[in-house]
């Protein structure tokens, strides 16, 4: 059933968030550190485990998960429409210069760091 897919993602989310909160407590800053990442990791491990066992996720369950991931871009569009744009642009040049330079710096480092991954395989 499709709802199993929605439930599986929800379960992963809560499990991940729980681990994230434990990590937050352990390092002493509270909050949820990497909860989404742990949830994704669990999803990947679990689905890969089922595949290896020769019992992949049922088609209808998969459809439930795909429904959610197909909503991903629309959700991002909604997310962009609720950013605090007005304040961001009126806070002055420091914020704009810092934000733009940090973005450019990060983007330019992508090919450099990717090479690191490439050379390791060879």
């Amino acid at each position: 059933m499709e709802i199993y897919g929605l439930g599986l993602v929800a379960f992963s989310m809560f499990l991940g968030s729980f681990i994230g909160r434990i990590v937050g407590q352990l390092v002493g800053i509270g909050g949820d550190i990497g909860g989404v990442g742990f949830a994704m990791l669990f999803m990947i491990l679990y689905t890969n485990f089922l595949d290896k066992k020769g019992k992949p996720i049922a088609e209808k369950t998969g459809k439930g998960i795909l429904l959610l991931s197909s909503l991903y871009i629309p959700i991002v569009v909604a997310m962009s429409s609720i950013q605090n744009m007005a304040t961001a642009f009126e806070q002055g040049a420091v914020a704009i210069v810092a934000g733009v330079l940090a973005t450019l710096g990060g983007l330019l480092l992508v090919p450099v760091m990717s090479k690191l991954g490439g050379s390791k395989e060879e």
Binding site: M13, M43, I44, L71, V76
Partner: peptide, 27 residues
């Protein structure tokens, strides 16, 4: 008129949908 955008674009749905994209990612 657009309060719902705060729900759809908020952290809960964003994270829920992001996690679902892990389905199909290759180990």
């Amino acid at each position: 008129l657009f309060t719902g955008m705060g729900i759809l674009g908020g952290g809960m749905f964003r994270d829920y949908a992001i996690i679902s994209t892990a389905y199909g990612a290759d180990m």
